[in-house]
Amino acid sequence: MKKMQSFRSLGRKVQQGFTLVELAIVLAVIGLIIGAVAIAKDVQRNAEYQKAINKFAYQWKMAYDQYYQRTGGVVGDCQQAPTYMVDGSETTVTGAGAGGGAACTRAGSMSVPGIPASFTGRGSKICAGQGYAADTVGQGDRALAGLNLRDLMTRAGVRMPPGRGEGHEDRFLYIDSNGNPAELQVCFQFNDAGVASGAGNVMVIRGLTPDLARYMDQVIDGKPDSREGRFRIQGRPAQTSTATEANGPGTQWEANNTEGVAINVGGAGSTQMNTSNTRQVVVNAPGNAGGTATGRTYDEDQVILLTAHWIMEQ
């Protein structure tokens, strides 16, 4: 009889489930694993962002500076009669006799000052190919210059970043926050005085997600402000003349990673308000399938892409 009771008690012990402490430990371990996976994704993305700026954007800035040191002029400028404008060799002097003259010869240019306002045809963008179609990754794209960025660097003996590979040094491939491939492209252009994204010669970086743009802005300027500093969004309206706006805080990068690629940033069909009380607001263009100002959270969407200007020292 005692043996039967001991067997029954043993059976009851075998049938017992996990204790609350054991369940808590299991759940804690599962939580740690999930957290580690999420952190690993963030670490991987941050490492990719660091590579984009250190191995690509910064190296292109070094290549631009090296070109200036070797040739005595900026990219695409005249060596014998520099204009200090990117693509200056393709401009003409407005006061140079009948119909003007080429900037590099300066024929008859003594009749006008040698400042940008005296040159026509300025402001074209020097790239190594079109890349993204005009105004598809931010509004305000300039026309392509007749010169090729890769050819200019090669002729001057300037070493370019590896980029995507031989012949594609101006491109850099990365993954957006939804896992979709996106491509950066580097160009250079001259901005006239008064251009909100920065006057003078700038590096044009096309194909930035808002997350990557903010990261680069933080590294370059120390704060993610799309309208101030040396790193700015292309097509940003200038500050208004009111004292409140002029002395107010800057403007955040208006797009975010929950917005689809079809959003029209700053162009026809979109609304961008620029007052001290209502900052940049992105509204989906009519007929577009992308996100809206409130954000679309489809994790299969291509994240919206932007264009930024990095102001150069020369």
Results as ranks from 00 to 15, higher is better:
Gly31Asn: 05
Leu32Val: 14
Leu32Phe: 08
Leu32Ile: 13
Ile33Pro: 02
Ile33His: 01
Ile33Cys: 07
Gly35Leu: 07
Gly35Ser: 14
Gly35His: 01
Ala36Trp: 10
Ala36Asp: 03
Val37Met: 10
Val37Pro: 00
Ile39Gly: 00
Ile39Phe: 12
Ala40His: 08
Lys41Gln: 13
Lys41Ala: 07
Lys41Thr: 06
Lys41Ile: 02
Val43His: 02
Arg45Phe: 11
Asn46Gln: 11
Ala47Glu: 08
Glu48Tyr: 05
Glu48His: 03
Lys51Phe: 05
Lys51Val: 01
Ala52Cys: 12
Ile53Tyr: 15
Asn54Ser: 09
Phe56Tyr: 13
Phe56Cys: 01
Ala57Asn: 10
Ala57Phe: 11
Gln59Cys: 00
Trp60Ala: 02
Lys61Ala: 09
Lys61Gln: 15
Met62Ser: 12
Tyr64Asp: 12
Asp65Asn: 15
Asp65Tyr: 14
Gln66Asn: 14
Gln66Tyr: 06
Tyr68Lys: 15
Gln69Pro: 03
Gln69Gly: 03
Arg70Asn: 15
Arg70Leu: 15
Thr71Ser: 12
Gly72Leu: 13
Gly72Asn: 10
Gly73Lys: 07
Val74Ala: 04
Val74Ser: 02
Val75Arg: 00
Val75Met: 10
Gly76Val: 07
Gly76Tyr: 10
Asp77Met: 10
Asp77Lys: 07
Cys78Ala: 11
Gln79His: 12
Gln80Val: 12
Pro82Ser: 11
Pro82Phe: 06
Pro82Glu: 08
Thr83Lys: 11
Thr83Met: 06
Thr83Gly: 05
Tyr84Gly: 08
Tyr84Lys: 14
Tyr84His: 15
Val86Ser: 01
Val86His: 00
Val86Met: 02
Asp87His: 06
Asp87Cys: 03
Asp87Gly: 03
Gly88Gln: 04
Gly88Cys: 04
Gly88Ala: 04
Ser89Pro: 00
Ser89Arg: 13
Glu90Ile: 00
Glu90His: 09
Glu90Asn: 15
Thr92Tyr: 14
Thr92Gln: 08
Thr92Val: 08
Val93Lys: 01
Val93Pro: 00
Thr94Cys: 02
Gly95Val: 03
Gly95Arg: 04
Ala96Tyr: 10
Ala96Asn: 08
Ala96Trp: 09
Ala96Lys: 01
Gly97Ala: 02
Gly97Tyr: 14
Ala98Leu: 10
Gly99Gln: 08
Gly100Ser: 03
Gly101Arg: 01
Ala102Lys: 08
Ala102Gln: 11
Ala102Leu: 10
Cys104Trp: 07
Cys104Ser: 10
Thr105Pro: 00
Arg106Leu: 13
Ser109His: 11
Met110Phe: 12
Met110Ser: 14
Met110Ile: 10
Met110Asn: 11
Val112Thr: 14
Gly114Lys: 02
Gly114Ser: 09
Ile115Cys: 01
Pro116Lys: 03
Pro116Ala: 08
Ala117Val: 07
Ser118His: 07
Ser118Pro: 05
Ser118Phe: 06
Ser118Leu: 02
Phe119Lys: 01
Phe119Ile: 00
Thr120Trp: 10
Thr120Arg: 09
Thr120Gly: 15
Gly121Phe: 11
Gly121Arg: 03
Gly121Thr: 05
Arg122Leu: 06
Gly123Ala: 09
Gly123Met: 07
Lys125Trp: 04
Ile126His: 03
Cys127Pro: 02
Gln130Leu: 15
Gln130His: 07
Gln130Arg: 13
Gly131Tyr: 06
Gly131Ala: 05
Gly131Leu: 05
Tyr132Asp: 03
Ala134Tyr: 14
Asp135Glu: 12
Asp135His: 15
Thr136Met: 09
Val137Tyr: 13
Val137Gly: 06
